[in-house]
Computed example of a mutant assay.
Amino acid sequence: MTSAPPTPPVPVRRRIVLHVPGYEPLDAAAQARRLARTVGRTATCWGLRGVTGPATASEDGAVLAFPARLVGPDWDTEAEIRILDWHDLIARDLAVPLWSRIGGGLAALWALLADGTLGRYGRAHWRYLMFVALPVALLLGAVLGGVVAGRLVGGWAGVVAGTAVAAGLVMLADRRAHLGHLLADWVFARDLARGTRPEIAARVRRFAAEITAARHRRDAEEVVLSGHSLGMVLLAEALAASLEAEPAPPRPAPRLALVGLGSSLLKIALMPEATRLRAAVARIAAAPGLAWLEYTSRRDLVSFHRADPVAVLGLAGRGPHMERIHPRAMLDSGTWRRVRRSMLRAHRIYVTGNMRRYFYDWGMIACGPGAVGRDTAPDRLLGADGALATAAIGATVA
């Protein structure tokens, strides 16, 4: 007797997306506008109809949610995109005077050198050290410029001139290359690893409650947890706390997928003090039924390209499915030229939207018909007209 072929799963019709942004001075409303533009670019790129709605904030202001929808010829997927906000913690850091941020950032980097963390970074992905060295190189350049100016002028006038030139170059580096932001990021990273800031722990607990609530939702087939850059660290700790409190929510429960975008997990987890984060990664690696994907790019110096965090940390369990993306394949030529000249633009490419069809597209992760981590990528899932390629539905990610 010949058995009938298995029935392929139907496209996802409704999805909950919990997104934790990276260490950026953008409030939740600005993040929502960015992601809405990204969904719109996805619609344009793939020839679909895209709709986004107004955002509403939670009572405590920690979450900003807005609806989004993509519609193809034979599918229709709605998403509730919930931004887990922590910009107030970042704004507090960036309100510290620049010279204090410089001192704190240099102290944090010196500690990483002394305890061997920079060596571990190099072994995980040597190009990450270029990002580490950037603020130091900017400061050395400013000092060198001041020395040259002082020598040219000479005498006490040269001391004054050299100091003024060095200070001016530092201010220029802050405006043009975000020097103060880069160094504040390292101070935050140190505090996060050490667990010395109660407000960070409180925000992680709030995010964990949001994840637990999403896992209980009956009106969605899938919950996608999306973490960009340093936001992936907060998301990982929150997910681990949710899984620890409730390993299996009441059935039926939506599928659960974790997506890292230019993740900074290893930035923190390779610090000796980050025992809590390493335990969180181990808990996630052991979670049954969790789809875990990590997207990195060689052009992105702010992430650990192709480095499996579970393998690098020597943990048991199953690591993420690693995918590498090429921004050049996602963008038009003019945008690509701008991205390749900016380290920060290259790091934001995961969430700023596609201009060409490509296997990676955040808008498709949020509102596409394929189950994240289960179905094949959108460039094979959809035909030229945006309709489903039926043979691809249910085809598993390699």
Rank of each mutant, 00 (worst) to 15 (best):
R218A: 15
M330E: 13
A391N: 09
T56Y: 00
L243E: 09
G319R: 07
L313K: 03
L64K: 07
A166F: 03
M364E: 10
R194S: 12
E246G: 02
E244Q: 14
H181G: 05
H228R: 09
G72C: 09
A43H: 04
A142R: 04
T56F: 00
L344K: 11
H321P: 00
A387P: 02
V51G: 03
L64I: 09
E294N: 15
D375A: 07
P54Q: 09
A167D: 03
R197T: 15
P25W: 02
D379Q: 11
A157D: 14
A173M: 06
R255E: 15
G47H: 04
G119N: 13
A282N: 08
G103Q: 10
E222T: 10
T44Y: 00
V397G: 01
Y128N: 07
G47K: 04
H305F: 10
V10T: 14
R357K: 14
V170S: 00
A166Q: 02
E294Y: 03
A79I: 10
D74I: 09
R345T: 04
T396C: 10
V71G: 01
A248F: 08
A4F: 12
P73N: 06
A28F: 10
L169S: 04
C367L: 07
L89K: 09
E59Q: 13
D76C: 06
L140C: 14
I325M: 14
A4L: 14
P198D: 10
D115T: 08
G386D: 05
V312T: 13
R176I: 13
A236F: 01
D60C: 11
L129T: 03
H305L: 00
A274W: 04
G168Y: 08
A164R: 14
G154T: 10
F304M: 09
T376E: 13
L139F: 02
A253G: 05
R218I: 09
A166C: 08
F66I: 05
A57Q: 11
R306S: 13
V147W: 13
L290S: 05
H19V: 02
V20S: 12
Y121A: 04
R49F: 01
A329R: 15
L277S: 05
T296Q: 04
A114Q: 14
P8N: 03
V20D: 01
L230A: 14
S264L: 04
W336D: 11
G373Y: 07
V259F: 03
A149T: 12
L192N: 09
G154W: 04
D308R: 06
G40P: 00
S303R: 01
N354G: 07
E221P: 05
L140N: 00
V159M: 10
D115P: 08
R206T: 15
R82Y: 00
D85H: 12
D93C: 12
D300C: 07
L230I: 12
L243C: 05
R203V: 07
A371F: 12
A287Y: 06
A346M: 09
H178I: 00
L277R: 01
E80G: 13
T117H: 09
G231R: 04
M355H: 14
E222Y: 08
R380N: 07
G262Q: 03
F66R: 04
F359R: 15
L98C: 07
L266I: 07
L192P: 00
K267Y: 05
W362Q: 13
L113T: 12
S100D: 14
L169M: 12
G141L: 08
D74L: 09
G227N: 03
S3Q: 12
V12R: 12
V63R: 15
W110S: 12
T335R: 15
S3G: 00
A253H: 12
V281D: 02
I211P: 06
